[in-house]
Design a protein around this nucleic acid. Structure first.
Lengths: 193, 193
DNA sequence: ACCTGAACACCGTTCAAGT
DNA sequence: ACCTGAACACCGTTCAAGT
């Protein structure tokens, strides 16, 4: 191949891309998504310029992290739909949704605008995740476990609201979620079963 | 009086203090609570230095605005307790609580930490507001309208979560609140009556 | 071709001079 | 005594030089 030097370069670049994503996860977990790109660069052992090469803006890096989470949640919804009774699958998934977002301070807030975004790649990842969540919701409705009138967007906004409030609550989301579930479910929440 | 010059100074300063609070409200309403202090200064027709003289930090100005809202909500709770049936008073107040915070982008987020703050003057204003809300909550419980186990802190975190999510929702808090109310109230929400 | 980090630009904060 | 805004400090971003 005449392009071997180029391929090595691309391999290095791909590795740095992964390193930066991993560093972003670590830094975001410790300091929230508003941490400086300098901190992410230091944690990855790379120069600031390299961060900007791979992610032109602060938002681009947040969005890359967010896209990973959305894909995880999408596939998790599909899995739960196969393996769990409808109501159980929905309740479990909502708990995991909130757990994902409370891990990184500020991420739930960064997520919310993507619910109205149908243009960017991130918006598409969100649409796919929402469709998977909507499938769980419809299954639970057909099982008679969820009241009519709830749409997926409203459900995800409620869950995100809990995630954001939980960031500043001494006991996290645990005391908050049951009250919303009681509002959403047709019968009193039956624990995790 | 030998201090007349000083009194005139104090009068000017007091007027500027009010001007800055009014300017902060206007700027926050337009741009959210993360707006620059320069913008607030310009809107008030004063120099930036004057903002810093009256409010040493960005947080101090946010807190002053927040304290005003907390006092309004406190007195409103006391009023509703006198004039409305228990369940109605609580539901109305929660709606007004959310309306207050959705007026200023970022204010609900700034409010949440004060729920765990028992030291600063702002923390005391929050404690008073929470006590007034708790009174409404207990009244509704005694009327059998609210399920046992809900405390005022959890209730206010749920309401704040809705307010934050509503900032990014096309239809605001309206589609979100009923689901939480249904979880909180013993019987299905009876509209506003 | 990619990476680096010093240089640049920007914005929040301070404080010497003015009223 | 308070107010002003130019000067300062800081941090996010860019880009010329290096590998």
């Amino acid at each position: 191949m005449t392009a071997s030097a180029g391929q090595i370069g691309r391999t290095d670049a791909a590795r740095n891309h992964e390193r930066l994503l991993a560093a972003a996860l670590a830094v975001y977990a410790a300091k929230g998504v508003d941490a400086s790109l300098k901190e992410v660069a230091d944690h990855a052992g790379l120069g600031v310029g390299t961060v900007y090469r791979h992610f032109p803006t602060r938002e681009a890096l947040q969005e890359a992290v967010l896209a990973d989470h959305l894909e995880t949640l999408r596939s998790r919804a599909a899995e739960l739909a196969q393996t769990h009774p409808a109501a159980d699958a929905l309740v479990t998934w909502l708990g995991e949704f909130i757990a994902h977002f409370t891990q990184y301070r500020g991420l739930a807030r960064a997520f919310l605008p993507t619910l109205s975004d149908r243009r960017t790649p991130l918006g598409h990842a969100c649409t796919d995740m929402r469709a998977a969540g909507s499938m769980l919701l419809e299954g639970a409705k057909q099982a008679g476990a969820v009241r009519a009138g709830l749409d997926a967007g409203t459900m995800l906004r409620l869950a995100s609201g809990i995630a954001m409030a939980a960031e500043y609550a001494p006991d996290g989301a645990a005391p908050l979620l049951p009250w919303v579930l009681d509002g959403v479910l047709s019968r009193p929440a039956a624990g995790t079963a």
